[in-house]
Amino acid sequence: MIIVGGVPFESNSTDQGSSDLVALMEHPVLVSTSLSFKAIPEKKFSISDTYSDEVEKKRHVYVFQREYATVDPTLVDLIGTDEATTCVGVVIRNRDNGMTSVAHMDYPAIVDHGLSQMLEKLVDCKHESEMDVHLIGGFEECPNKHDEHTQLRSKAPNDHSFPLCAKIIEAFVRSTVKFHIHTLFVLRHNTKIGTVGNALPIFSGFLVQTRTGSIVSATFDQTTRCPDELVRRIRVSASFSDSQWRNKLLETYDTQTDQFIIAPCYWSIRLVHMASYLQQLPDEEILHTCSTSPYAEAPDFIDNQKRMWNYLIQYPNWKESFKLGKPRIFARTVSGGWMMVEQAHEAAS
Rank of each mutant, 00 (worst) to 15 (best):
M1H: 06
V4A: 01
G6V: 02
P8N: 06
P8T: 05
E10A: 14
S13E: 06
E26W: 08
H27K: 11
L30A: 03
L30R: 01
V31A: 05
T33A: 04
S36H: 08
F37Y: 11
K38A: 15
I40P: 03
P41R: 14
P41E: 14
E42Q: 15
K44T: 06
F45R: 00
S46I: 02
S46A: 09
S48T: 03
V55E: 07
K57G: 10
K57A: 08
K57Y: 04
H60G: 06
Y62K: 04
Q65M: 06
R66N: 13
G80I: 00
E83C: 01
I110M: 14
L115N: 06
S116I: 09
L119T: 13
V123K: 08
S129V: 04
D132M: 02
G138S: 09
E141P: 03
N144F: 09
D147R: 03
E148W: 09
H149V: 06
R153G: 12
N158I: 09
H160P: 04
A166G: 13
I168A: 01
A171Y: 07
S175W: 02
F185G: 01
F185C: 02
T195D: 15
V196M: 10
V196C: 10
G197Q: 11
L200K: 13
I202P: 00
V208R: 00
R211P: 00
T212D: 08
R225P: 01
R225H: 09
P227S: 10
P227G: 08
D228F: 00
L230K: 10
R232C: 07
R232Y: 11
R235A: 02
V236I: 05
S243F: 10
R246E: 09
L249K: 02
L250V: 04
L250Y: 07
D254C: 04
T257W: 01
F260D: 07
F260C: 14
A263S: 10
A263T: 08
C265E: 04
Y266W: 06
V272M: 03
H273V: 03
M274G: 11
M274Y: 05
S276P: 00
Y277H: 13
L278T: 05
Q279T: 06
E284R: 13
E285M: 13
I286P: 00
C290R: 12
C290P: 02
A298Q: 14
P299D: 10
D300L: 09
F301I: 11
I302M: 03
I302V: 15
N304Y: 04
M308H: 01
W309N: 11
W309M: 11
Y311N: 03
K319N: 12
S321H: 00
S321W: 00
K323Q: 12
P327H: 04
S335I: 08
S335F: 07
W338N: 07
E342G: 06
Q343Y: 00
Q343V: 01
Q343H: 02
H345D: 12
E346K: 10
